[in-house]
Simulated assay, not measured.
Amino acid sequence: MHARAVAASTTALLGTAALLLPLVPARAAGHTGPHPVVVAHRGASAYAPENTLAAVDKAAALDVEWVENDVQRTRDGELVVLHDDSLQRTTDVEEVFPDRSPWKVKDFTAAEIARLDAGSWFGPAYVGTRVPTLEQFLERMERHDQKLLLELKNPQLYPGIERETLKVLGNEGWLDPGHVGGRLVVQSFSADSVRTVHTLKPAVRTGLLGTPPVADLTAYAAFADQINPSHGSLSAPYVAAVRSLRGPHGARMEVLTWTVNDAAAARRVAGFGVDGIITNTPDVVRDAVGG
């Protein structure tokens, strides 16, 4: 996630509310007690290469149920798990394809991306780690019985990615009542994208990334179950304002904040009453706040 303004257009605040399916259980994101839920940011990304199967495995080894990831689309329509819109930072794409600058995900096929090393940059133990497809990522999470906070990254670059992501989720069994009820949230910085997901699959819980003005929260509550801000933008009154509202499924709106990597910051945001903390160091945060 990037600390940037919410990409909420005027159209995101207009239109009729989508039809709702029966209510899902309150606090379905996993926060059932006094402690915020801990979410492994891009997997346990302080300890393994971000957004890889190794990072999922490390989160599981740390007994962390919730994992956050980022989804983008290749030139030939495959959904892959990668944060940046360029392959440059976390793969060896410059070496493998030196003449393909600026190495955008959308300009490469899935087969080309599958050739890249997505682990060497992190450390020698991860040489040969690959960029996973969304299907591979979901299969690994299912193996560990984990829960997913899925971010639609840069949806403006990939028209229709909301429908395509939901199709993959459905094909992999992630849209059944058990997953939708407590194991899946789809989020984005784009309010249009979040509302599209809600319209296409009203049962799926959704989150809007960023810190929109309090005056706009009621409008977002029509299609977002969560407001998920950067921890530096948070205050106790803001969290209280979000949690005073009911989201589209009738449950109290939630706040999951990012990216908190030290004990002091974790205790601070926990004191604000957040429902979840997204972190590269889930063991550190869990030890600080419980959860």
Rank of each mutant, 00 (worst) to 15 (best):
H2R: 08
A3G: 05
A3S: 10
A8S: 09
S9P: 05
T10R: 11
P25K: 06
T52N: 05
K58I: 09
A61F: 13
R75Y: 12
D76A: 08
E78H: 12
H83V: 03
D85L: 15
Q88A: 13
V93G: 01
E95M: 14
P98C: 07
R100L: 13
P102E: 07
W103P: 00
V105R: 04
I113E: 03
A118D: 01
G128A: 10
E135I: 12
E135Q: 10
Q136P: 08
L138F: 02
Q146F: 01
Q156V: 07
L157N: 06
I161M: 15
L166Q: 12
V168N: 03
N171I: 09
E172T: 14
G181S: 15
F189S: 07
A191T: 06
A191Q: 05
D192Y: 02
T196N: 12
K201G: 10
A203F: 04
G207P: 07
A224Y: 01
P229W: 05
Y238L: 13
V239K: 04
A241I: 12
R243V: 10
E254R: 07
T259R: 04
A263V: 09
A265C: 07
F272I: 08
G273Y: 04
I277A: 10
T281H: 15
D287S: 13
D287N: 11
G291H: 09
